[in-house]
């Protein structure tokens, strides 16, 4: 099926990139918190990369939804995609207001939320546990 091929060549790489970025963000920000440092430029770069990946996922996800014949609740799926785009910027704003180790801790929470949301997105897409 054409949709399956598209899913393998586009959807999977985007999902993997999002997961990788979020995982790096979780580990890096967790390490900064553990070492009792403030959030630095490095963390912000990782957060920005994660956001880019999530925006790409939004675009790919919506185009997939529009073209495919998937049995997915469109509103719910788009809500998750949009929610994912909002999480990291809000977390960065909230984190920058905290000049202690707990600032990067907020980014850890955000990264974990991204991982959970992507997992739910995958469940919705494949129709398991929805």
């Amino acid at each position: 099926m054409q949709a399956m091929a598209y899913a393998r060549t586009v959807l999977l790489p985007v999902t993997v990139t999002v997961l990788a970025c979020a995982a790096v963000l979780a580990v890096a920000s967790g390490a900064v918190t553990a070492r009792n440092r403030r959030a630095g430029t490095g963390l912000l770069v990782v957060a920005a990369l994660t956001e880019l990946a999530v925006v790409a996922q939004l675009v790919v996800g919506i185009s997939q939804l529009a073209s495919g014949d998937h049995d997915v609740s469109a509103a719910l799926f788009v809500a998750y995609l949009v929610g994912l785009v909002v999480v990291v910027p809000l977390a960065v704003l909230w984190a920058l207001g905290e000049p202690t180790r707990w600032g990067p801790g907020v980014l850890t929470v955000a990264a974990l939320v991204v991982l959970v949301l992507v997992a739910r997105l995958h469940q919705l897409w494949t129709g398991t546990g929805a």
């Binding site: 984190a95 801790g105 929470v109």
Partner: peptide
């Protein structure tokens, strides 16, 4: 909402949404 409270507020916000 400062110090560890920063994280608590973040987690609460996630659950609120």
């Amino acid at each position: 909402s400062s110090g560890p409270g920063r994280i608590l507020v973040a987690v609460y916000a996630v659950f609120a949404i």
